[in-house]
Design a protein around this nucleic acid. Structure first.
Lengths: 239, 239
DNA sequence: CGTCATTTTGAGGTATTTCAACGAAGGTGG
DNA sequence: CCACCTTCGTTGAAATACCTCAAAATGACG
């Protein structure tokens, strides 16, 4: 039962290239050397479900890279509402600060493992290693794109359409294989609502509607089987 | 009338530091040397009002830095709706590609001047110069924050509150001095609507409402004088 | 197997959207 | 310099969609 863990390879980062596929020097992946370089300054953090990794407004001492599991970042608004900023999967980066403080609170959605990198050390390393920094630059740019896509999603008025877009976004990320018709949604309905900017009830009705229309069917509360992918994609794209 | 232009200093970039104010090596400003370095690979582009700089989906050959004026980036949706992604002011960067293509269309809101930097050359330079790259990394991070703030803004249901937040965002950016009570809005009402995710009519009603409540008053269509800043700030923060 | 939190479903209230028409502004040409 | 035209912005009334409040049902967990 106490197997020795495999040799630790260090964090990975998921990115998208700036240039078209094929330009070799643009490959936005961490080399093994860079991974061990990051690993050298990183701390492995295991967190059970629902654990808070850092709080909004606290001093931003570390940057995080998700290795396994799922993390959400959110802000609680004065009205008591909660807005979820992002869901983070394996190989996602989070905890970028602004003026030395975290802008969001980070909490695990399920049992997760992350790497924690001291910000001061990391920035120093990045200032020295342009190639490594470029991976981060590419990553943040990718996050920016994601955020802008989400903004477009939030422009939709209909709850069902918004949820359909959410499904399509979840299909590509995380533990979901694009090929599969099953999309895993580890987070709760209220998390989805807080992410989509809808009420919990609206999300529930949206899923009910899509189920009634035989576009999807739930296998438990955290797994969606897509019954009619073309129609779902059409609904998601119809904005 | 044909005065010789001042010595050209090259582009500037507006950023926010990761670390708390005071950490010297984090100062995210371009040094004069870096500015001239960028200037060496840059082309100055002057564009009249309404000119398209690049189109969504076209090959992303260049990165842009706004020097003067105002640029909007947007996507036209299948439904015919237009969603404005960002408004860009002096010292803002735009045109970051994804897989070699632009994700948005960029068009000037008013007469503008920008620097255009060839992507391939720039990425090569960034790979060499970690300090310069760090300015870009900081900038993109800042843009990501802005995008996330906007997402929160879009979560609001009431048009007046959304517009109030928009005003507060515009107050900090661009040609507006935070001290002044006058906020310039160079863009059209439909641009604002496309940015806020509302209909043109909703925006119009929102401005009318704020005017009736004596929170603001319009001096022409592109200048807002704030009459009651505390109340406006409270409205903007009440979400 | 019981308890508790989460999710679903129902009904009414409210805000924006839409459609339509009017009014204002800006630009062009005579 | 004025008239015209086109675009943009404002206002009104009905339709739509979500939000809120409330209660029942489902599922998770010990």
């Amino acid at each position: 039962m106490t197997r020795r863990p495999k040799r630790e390879l260090g964090p990975l980062i998921r990115t998208m290239p700036y240039l078209a596929a094929g330009a070799p020097e643009q490959a936005p992946l961490l080399t093994p050397k860079q991974r061990s370089q990051l690993l050298a300054i990183a701390t492995r953090v295991s967190a059970r479900k629902g654990q808070v990794l850092y709080r909004e407004g606290s001093l931003a001492t570390s940057l995080y890279i998700c290795y396994e599991g799922m993390v959400k970042t959110y802000r609680d608004l004065p009205s008591g509402r909660r807005r979820i900023t992002t869901f983070l999967y394996s190989r996602d980066v989070f905890g970028l600060a602004e003026s030395g403080r975290y802008v969001n609170t980070a909490q695990t959605v399920v049992k997760s493992t992350c790497y924690r990198l001291p910000m001061d050390v990391l920035t120093a390393v990045l200032q020295q290693d342009a190639a490594l920094q470029f991976v981060f630059l590419t990553k943040v740019t990718h996050e920016l794109r994601q955020s802008q896509r989400r903004t477009i999603m939030l422009g939709r008025r209909d709850a069902a359409g918004r949820f359909a877009m959410f499904l399509m976004m979840m299909r590509q990320h995380g533990p979901n294989r694009p090929a599969s018709n099953v999309i895993l949604l580890p987070m709760s309905r209220s998390d989805i609502a807080a992410y989509l900017g809808h009420s919990l009830e609206a999300v529930s009705r949206a899923t009910a509607q899509l189920s009634t229309q035989r576009l999807i069917t739930f296998q438990g509360r955290h797994a969606v089987r897509v019954l009619d992918m073309p129609r779902l994609e059409r609904l998601a794209a119809d904005l």
